[in-house]
Amino acid sequence: MAYAITDRCISCWACLTVCPNQAIAHVEGLFMIDPQHCTECAGDFPDPQCSSICPVEGAIENEWGEPVNPPGSLSSMSAR
C-alpha cells in the first residue's frame, strides 16, 4: 500500500511538508515516495496528505497506478 509521484510533478515541495511518515524524499531536484514508509496516511489522517495538497492533476498515483487527482478534479469551478 503506497502512493507514487509521477513525472508530472512540478517540484513544488508541498507534499514534503505534510507527509506524517517522512516518506517523501527530495533527490537532485526530484521528489519520490519511499514505498517502505508510505502508509497512505492510514491511522494518521482520513485523507492521504500528499495528494490532498498536491496542486497538479495526475502527479500522484495510488498503488494501482491510478491518478488520485484525475484530470479536471483540481481546476476552478468557473472552468467547468
Binding site: 508541498a14 505534510v18 489522517f45 490532498s52 495538497i53 483540481l74 481546476s75 469551478m77 468557473s78
Partner: peptide, 17 residues
C-alpha cells in the same frame, strides 16, 4: 472567492469550491 480559489488545504484536508 470560489471563482478565484479552486481549493485550499486546511486541517489535513483538501476543500474545494
Amino acid at each position: 472567492g470560489a471563482r478565484i480559489y479552486p481549493w485550499v488545504f486546511w486541517e489535513h484536508k483538501r476543500w474545494k469550491g
